[in-house]
Design a protein around this nucleic acid. Structure first.
Lengths: 143, 143
DNA sequence: ATAGCTGCAAATGCTTTGCAAGGCC
DNA sequence: GGCCTTGCAAAGCATTTGCAGCTAT
């Protein structure tokens, strides 16, 4: 059930550089997690899935640290949080403008490039409010 | 802090009829909750807010029953669940096609009529999947 | 009568936090 | 050395569930 066809994780040096850039101290755990997360531009993880993955790779990182790290990465702009499921939080390594397909049954997220979808007719928000972001979630199910 | 300008709740008879229609037994608690929920077509509640409201009205209903009732109403098609916040579930009395503004800071949901927003360019979902629904959440903040 | 509901309290599942020990600069 | 980070375990929340007692039909 492990992901067989993923590019090898990025080097510790790359991960370290990336962390320093974001103003985060490159600890062993962060470097390890960054290595797994940023190997390509399209990953969706939950704290648990990432913890399983890093644990499966033989690295010891506590679940609490995974949670903390995901939030730190998010604050640093390295990740984006995606809210589609009441039960758990997803984190997306793609921080750019894009939307998602979501397969609720399996907890699967699939990116939709930002230019693909056009949302027209968004009304002006009520007085005193301004638009922060427009999220589109295309909920899908298996046929 | 109570909502001062809300229409009086619908009569117990109306609520009862509505419940029977949905195939739900009109118990005291359900009639009471339905009366509060369906007084107009645009309410967004959480289990806790509804529990506070019904309790504040001097009616005794346990929080567990509020949760159960919200889910039963949702299954019966009387409510729709809205997922915009990782921390809590919202239920919307408007079950028709429409979208939402969401003020995260205050947990406030505001309806956007279905015809207002047009989402174009939704790509065909990956093979084996079909679109269930397209949710648009316009996240706003106070100026 | 009886199948279905309710309420309480306990349990659950995800997430956060306090704090001592350890690691990076 | 000093400050930041980690890890564990405990705490926290929203939500769900088991089950005895109650209620609508």
């Amino acid at each position: 059930m492990a992901k067989a066809s993923r590019e090898p994780k990025i080097s510790a040096e790359e991960a370290t550089a990336r962390l320093r850039h974001a103003g985060l101290r490159p600890t062993r755990q962060r470097v390890e997690l960054a290595g797994l997360l940023f190997q390509d531009g399209d990953r969706h993880v939950t704290a648990e899935s990432l913890h399983d993955e890093v644990s499966g790779a033989g690295v010891k990182v506590s679940l609490a640290t995974v949670y903390n790290t995901l939030h730190q990465f998010t604050e640093a702009g390295l990740l984006r949080q995606v809210i589609v499921d009441a039960a758990r939080s997803y984190f997306d390594t793609n921080t750019g403008d894009h939307q998602h397909f979501f397969l609720e049954k399996e907890g699967l997220l699939i990116d939709i490039p930002g230019e693909t979808i056009a949302v027209a007719g968004v009304p002006a928000p009520p007085p005193g409010l301004s638009v922060d972001r427009v999220d589109v979630v295309v909920r899908v199910r298996r046929n």
